[in-house]
Structures are given as structure tokens and as C-alpha cells.
Write a protein that binds this DNA or RNA. Structure first.
Lengths: 127, 127
DNA sequence: CGGGATCCAGTCGGATACTG
DNA sequence: CAGTATCCGACTGGATCCCG
């Protein structure tokens, strides 16, 4: 059922995953999956993001068909962002990623501690 | 509402995913999943990677317990890298990611074309 | 309110050279 | 062979100003 290598990891695949699974995209998508939001609303939902990064992230996600941008009003300008049908297919992935990271996190932290302790006897090599 | 979300996307989760799902890690892991390899062997398996990036990637993966580094010989120095048990749990994830990207890639490219065409109609940006 | 333009510091990644 | 060290250009991301 599952071959060891069903398909090669082509540059096109890598590019797509990079554009969609990057630092802010996951959080933006996660937030938008809960409910459609406007720009500044979204900005508050993702605390650490700056306007520039948020704009870039939204543009990228929009370009890849993951989110839709709807102009609600023209007066004080209201823009609503929502996940598209295509974008909603990502929820399962994000969920799987989250579940995996949760399950292995303890082991990972153990490994990190072991690595940080085993390698640099001279210490001081933390991030 | 959805209890399908076991936990929020904490910084710790994001950090782990970032260290493991980045540009080179996926390809290195994919290659190492097929068979254990030595440094330069691995370097040939992932054509575009530089030694610096490969070293950094391997160190990071090793630190997170995803790969194991084994010293085989001491004379001309032979080092073997192989995926750990923890790292092998990633195969399913990578597989899911790959399957997803494959399935949506056509739609994504359509969306991209639409986006690139819809926006700047005032300028033919063909370079 | 939403977002484009700009400046700027910090980081990343590539190329090269050198070592055990 | 398997790295480490270094220089450096490119890209990133933050802060700020401004416009519709």
C-alpha cells in the first residue's frame, strides 16, 4: 500500500510546502480556520506577527489559493480573509503535524538534552 | 468547537516543526529513509545542497533525535548517518505532506495563474 | 482600517580554503 | 573523507511613514 518512495520530492512540491508551511502561514491558517477575520483582527490573533509579514503571508496564501480575500466595504475599507475550500484541505495536514509534534516532543527534548550534554564538553553552545 | 484540535500551536511545536520540516531536512530525511548513508554519499543524493547546509541540517536533525551519527572507522574517517526510530515516525508525515501537495498542486497552479493575471492587468510584468 | 514603500539590521546560505 | 572557519551577497523581518 505504501511504497517506500511513492513519488520523488520534486522542487515544485517543496516550493508549495515551503510557501504554505512556513512560520506564519501555519498560525494564520489555523486562526482563519476558526473563523474568517479582517486584517487587524487577524493581526491580534497572531500576536508576534508584524504588518509586513502578515501582508506577505496573506498574499502568498492567497496566491496559492489557500485563502480568499473579500472586500466588504469601500468606505473605511473592510477586508475579510477566509480559508478557501482548497485551504481547508490543509487542516488535516496541520492537525497531523500538530499531533506528531505533540507525541514526539518529549523524546525530542530528551534527545536535545543528550546532544547538548554529549557533544560540547566545553559547554555554551545553546541556541 | 472542534475537539479535533488537541492542543494549540505552541512555540515549542512550531520550533520543532521548523527544525524538521525545513528546506533540506525533508530531502535529507527522505534520502536517509531509503538507506543509511555517509556524508558525501548523502551530499550526492541531495544535489543542490552545500556542505555547510548539509552539516547544519544533519546536526539539527541529530540534535532533535531524528538521525543517528555513527563513526565507522577512524583512519580515513567514515561516518554513517541513519534515521533513528524517532525519525522514522516522520515518514508518515512526509508521506502525507507529499500526497497532499501532489493532490492539490494542479489547483494551486491554477490559483497562481489566476492571481498573477487578476492583479496587475495594468502592467505586463513579463520580464 | 488596510496596506504599500522604504530604510535598515540581522540572518541565511553559498563559495572557498584549510584541517585531522 | 568529514568536517570547521571565514568572507560575503542575498534575502528576511522589523520599524516607520504615508496614502486611499
Amino acid at each position: 500500500m505504501h511504497e517506500t518512495t511513492p513519488a520523488a520530492l520534486t522542487p515544485a512540491h517543496r516550493e508549495l510546502l515551503d510557501q504554505v508551511l512556513d512560520k506564519w502561514s501555519l498560525q494564520v491558517l489555523e486562526s482563519l480556520c476558526e473563523r474568517p477575520q479582517r486584517f487587524n483582527e487577524l493581526r491580534r490573533s497572531v500576536p508576534a506577527v508584524t504588518q509586513k509579514s502578515l501582508t506577505a503571508t496573506l498574499r502568498r496564501l492567497e496566491r496559492n489559493g489557500m485563502v480568499e480575500r473579500n472586500l466588504l466595504s469601500s468606505r473605511p475599507v473592510a477586508v475579510e480573509y477566509r480559508v478557501s475550500a482548497l485551504g481547508s484541505t490543509l487542516q488535516d495536514l496541520v492537525d497531523a503535524l500538530l499531533a506528531w509534534s505533540t507525541s514526539v516532543l518529549p523524546d525530542v527534548e530528551t534527545a536535545r538534552a543528550a546532544f547538548d550534554g554529549t557533544g560540547p564538553d566545553t559547554a555554551s553552545l545553546s541556541r
